[in-house]
C-alpha cells in the first residue's frame, strides 16, 4: 500500500507492547526530522500510540507503515491488524465505548488528535486505520 506524495520511512511489526513503543519512536523521529512543533508531534504520536496498542491488544497484532510528506510537511500512517474486525465502527470510536479493560477513549481520541482519520473494518477481515498529522 502506498500513500500519494508520501515517502515510506519505516514499517513496524506490531505484536507486543514493546512494538507499540517502537511505533511511537519511529513516528517521533519523523516529526523531529520535519522540525515540527512539540504540540503537533505529541498530538499525532499519542494518536499513533492509541491505534498501535489497539492493534496489539484487540487486533492480534499487525503492522504499521509510516510515511513522511513534504508538501505540506507531515506524517501519515497505515495500521492494519489481524483481528476479528469491528462490527460497529462509529460506536467503537465514540468516547466511553470499550470492549476490554480500557476506558474507551482510545480510538475516538486518536480520531480527534489526527488531522485526517479513516477506519475501515468489517467482522472477520481485520481493521485498517489510516491517519495523518501535519507537522
Amino acid at each position: 500500500m502506498t500513500v500519494p506524495g508520501g515517502r515510506l520511512v519505516a514499517t513496524v511489526k506490531l505484536s507486543t507492547d514493546r512494538d507499540v513503543a517502537r511505533a511511537r519512536q519511529a513516528v517521533s523521529r519523523a516529526f523531529d526530522d520535519l522540525k515540527a512543533r512539540a504540540i503537533r508531534k505529541t498530538r499525532f504520536v499519542t494518536a499513533v500510540s492509541e491505534i498501535a496498542r489497539n492493534a496489539v491488544t484487540h487486533g492480534r497484532g499487525g503492522e504499521m507503515s509510516i510515511f513522511v510528506h513534504d508538501r505540506p510537511p507531515g506524517v501519515s500512517v497505515i495500521c492494519s491488524d489481524n483481528g476479528p474486525g469491528i462490527e460497529n465502527t462509529e460506536q467503537a470510536m465514540s468516547d466511553g465505548f470499550s470492549t476490554g479493560r480500557s476506558m474507551g477513549k482510545g480510538l475516538g481520541g486518536a480520531r480527534r488528535l489526527a488531522d485526517t482519520f479513516e477506519l475501515v473494518s468489517s467482522p472477520g477481515s481485520g481493521t485498517v486505520v489510516r491517519m495523518s498529522g501535519t507537522a
Binding site: R43, T46, R112
Partner: peptide, 14 residues
C-alpha cells in the same frame, strides 16, 4: 508535565 502533553490529554478528555 510538558505543555504539549497537557494539551493533548485535555483533548483526550483525560
Amino acid at each position: 508535565m510538558r505543555p504539549a502533553v497537557a494539551m493533548t490529554l485535555v483533548e483526550l478528555g483525560m
